[in-house]
Design a binder for these strands. Structure first.
Lengths: 115, 115
DNA sequence: GTAAGGTCTGACAGCGCTGTAAGGGTCAAG
DNA sequence: CTTGACCCTTACAGCGCTGTCAGACCTTAC
């Protein structure tokens, strides 16, 4: 299928589909005219990218993860790096939450002092 | 005092001090030669900016808040907007934390499914 | 007078993602 | 063949902050 249809089916903008390709996450065939030609396989990949992106991952991280994600949704093929990357991501998120919580505390303090 | 000294005393880089000025948060006097000349008043302001920044605020937000912050550290002069802005900021942070928590849940789910 | 160290302005770079616009082919239906 | 819908590439913009570099002037002290 062409890029427009894929965009419609996955809800990912055409711009982003091309971006994914530029970042090496996707490598669709090309028609003689140079049109990108995506197969169902690729559509699946896009859905996975979207999924992992929803979890707050960077495209670069997703790229490292993609080779391990060959099956259905939250089912992963055993890939050595996999666990490590996922755990690292969770750690990253925890750090951000921690930082935000501290900010929240500070602000709440200010707020309280204004009564 | 000149910019270098202020930077040393506050721990804010020279670059950022100039940036604050560009954003309208600071307006030091100038010597005949065009050097920025900060007074103790200004040093206080920088400390406040730093403080609010540590709470995760944008310079733009801080700017709106500055006129209300005339006293010591977490003590604020009653300023009508003040409460509103602070509360809004807390809300913003809560949203971000919520988003991150969801991401965390998703990732933790993946992690669990990899065992 | 000279040299070192501080300051000035202006501008480019990067982070990660996303939209949009320009200029120009391709394809399918009428 | 023409038209409209789609596609292609390239590149600029913006978010908010920060570092760094270039080219040039000021100041202080020897």
């Amino acid at each position: 299928m062409k890029i427009g249809e894929l965009a419609r089916r996955t809800g990912v903008s055409i711009r982003m589909l091309r971006y994914y390709e530029g970042e090496g996450l996707l490598a669709p065939q090309r028609t003689d005219a140079g049109y990108r030609d995506y197969g169902p396989e690729e559509e699946q990949t896009v859905r996975r990218i979207k999924m992992l992106g929803a979890a707050g991952m960077t495209l670069e991280t997703i790229q490292r993860l993609l080779p391990c994600v060959r099956n259905n949704d939250p089912a992963f093929t055993p890939c050595n790096e996999l666990r490590r990357i996922l755990a690292q991501q969770v750690g990253l998120i925890d750090e951000r939450i921690e930082t935000l919580s501290q900010s929240r505390t500070i602000l709440a303090g200010y707020l309280a002092s204004v009564n």
